[in-house]
Each structure stands twice: as C-alpha cells, then as structure tokens.
C-alpha cells in the first residue's frame, strides 16, 4: 500500500514538475481514497497525464460553487479517477469570472460528456473541447443554469407548489371534511 501511495504522488509530481501531497483515507472496509488539491487550474492537464500513465480511468468530474469558495472569490472542480478500485480526487480552484480549463478529451475520451455537462451548468469555459454543444439542457434554459438558479428564481421558488396548494386548500376545508 505504501508502495502504491508513493507511486501515485511521485508520478503526479513528475508530470506537474513540483512536489504534491496526496491525502489518503481508508474506510472501515479498507477501501482507499486519495485527495489532492492542485495549486493551479492548468495543472490538471499534466496531472491527468500522470493518471493515464498509472493506467487510471476518469470516473467523473464535479464542478461546484460553494458559498465558502465564493467568499474567497473562487469556484472549484474535482476530477475523480479510478485506480483499480482506489478513487483519486484531484481538485482545482478557478476564478469566479472567466474560468477556463483545458479539455482532457485527448487523454480521457469520456471527459467529453463530463465537460459538456459542466459547461452548461456553470460558467466555465473548456478550451479545446472538440464538440462544445449543450448536452442535456434545453436551449430555452439560460446558460450556466446552476449559477443563475442558486438564489431562488422564478423556476425554483416553489411557485408551482404554491399554486397547486392554493387549489387543494380551496377545495377542502380545514376541519378535515370535504366541502359538499
């Protein structure tokens, strides 16, 4: 296990040209997860090359925008890789405005949909994506949907629920008996 951990941090360090520290956690079943925050967004490209050299597989990409990060003026993306049963999460921080990251599609083919998806949900531009069209969102929905909607807006403010409940309460009285 020591050998494996060492191999992973050495390979990433080698590719990005500086020492990185990976924090390892082991759960009660003995399943290991590695967590590492890269100093700069662009470092994800060499780090991904390192993971490819370790025969890793891209499992998922999570873009997110927490209130805490926003206060610091940043947004985050986590890249989750599978190393034969061990999940390695590499996280980066990007600016709130004008966030850009290089596409990983030439290293991991399946980065394609992952990148298309976070491009339509968040204000992040992927440089070098071969096909940066929308994936799931209808064209009528505003771009960067998750950012526009996070303060309650017309769609998610419960307007629909309110209207339905008004009808329910108008047709049934409060005593539990149906109005004749």
């Amino acid at each position: 296990m020591m050998e494996f951990k060492k191999k992973v941090s050495e390979m990433i360090s080698l590719w990005i040209g500086e020492e990185v520290a990976v924090e390892w956690r082991i759960d009660i079943k003995g399943v290991m997860t590695g967590w590492c925050r890269l100093q700069e967004g662009t470092l994800i490209l060499p780090a991904a090359e390192a993971v490819a050299c370790l025969e890793g597989r891209l499992s998922m990409i999570t873009a997110y925008l927490s209130e805490q990060a926003k206060l610091k003026g940043v947004r985050e993306i986590s890249f989750h890789f599978d190393l034969n049963g061990t999940t390695l999460t590499l996280s980066i921080e990007l600016p709130l405005e004008g966030a850009r990251i290089p596409s990983l599609t030439h290293i991991f083919r399946n980065a394609d949909w992952n990148e298309r998806e976070f491009m339509e949900l968040y204000d992040i531009q992927v440089v070098g994506h071969p096909d940066p069209r929308r994936l799931f969102l209808d064209k009528s929905i505003d771009p960067a949907a998750f950012e526009r909607l996070i303060p309650y807006s017309t769609f998610s403010n419960g307007a629909n629920s309110k209207a339905l409940w008004e009808k329910v309460m108008a047709q049934n009285n409060h005593t539990g008996k149906e109005i004749p």
Partner: peptide
C-alpha cells in the same frame, strides 16, 4: 398529475 418529487425544478414544466 402534480409534478411529484420533481415539481419546481427549472427543467420541469408540468403538471
């Protein structure tokens, strides 16, 4: 009928 658990999502226009 009511949108069920998906009601009030930005991607749902029902009922």
């Amino acid at each position: 009928i009511s949108g069920g658990v998906f009601r009030d999502s930005y991607a749902v226009v029902g009922p």
